[in-house]
Design a protein around this nucleic acid. Structure first.
Lengths: 117, 117
DNA sequence: CACTTTCGTAAGCCATGACTTACGGTAAGC
DNA sequence: GCTTACCGTAAGTCATGGCTTACGAAAGTG
């Protein structure tokens, strides 16, 4: 029940930029906000959401607060996606076998026959 | 530039339910809507978004329209996540080495020493 | 041809949420 | 102790987008 919140978080462009920036290494809130077109409180709110989704962790460093990626939430999302991928691929193979996709016919290729049951 | 739209799509709970239902196999719009608490046009709109994100494909079957998962968009999302995972894990390891996480000390375990530079 | 089924789109409504400014609280510097 | 730096939260604003009903098109049914 955590990959849902992870997806929700990563869907927002700004929040994703914050997260992708964190991929390089730990960053303080001010540093993150400096590279973004939004205010510092906005970044704080995004970080709060990311933390609630298990995507980041934070550590106090004096008056500053340093955030970094938590593999926990990311891993859960990854596992969900992997399981999804396997099932989806099986379903797609079966689809391709039973209903061959309409391809744009190459030059000189006659249009495919349609069987009439 | 497609994993963004995939993330956006899968963030919505209803749209995700549609997509997860499609994981089992091809389904017509009406079938999908029957199992959901929203109207059929709502499902149509979700499918439109999913298709634009490269997450589903559709095929005409008489008056009905059958949708099924397109591995294309899902694969792109998966590749993005995998690359992200690797970098994030490296960053996390480095973080754990340089800044060992504060653990709740076990019974009898003295609080960790803080070095004062 | 009339009628039904199935579906996509248009238009409008409304809640969600992303952003802002304002404020208070904690730690470092002098 | 006073000031400055850094940050989280509160309150309010406003656009985005998910949902509905209404309508029209295309294909099956009689």
């Amino acid at each position: 029940m955590a990959y849902e919140s992870a997806l929700r978080c990563l869907a927002d462009p700004t929040r994703r930029r914050v997260f992708e920036r964190l991929r390089e290494g730990p960053r303080a809130v001010g540093e993150l906000a400096a590279g973004l077109p939004v205010s510092r409180p906005a970044v704080s709110q995004h970080l709060k959401a990311l933390k609630a989704a298990g995507l980041v962790l934070d550590r106090a460093e004096g008056a500053r607060r340093v955030y970094f990626i938590d593999p926990e939430g990311l891993g859960e999302l990854r596992r969900w996606l992997d399981r999804f991928w396997d099932q989806a691929l099986d379903a797609f193979k079966h689809e391709a076998e039973t209903h061959p996709p309409r391809r744009r016919p190459a030059r000189g290729t006659p249009p495919p026959e349609r069987k009439k049951p």
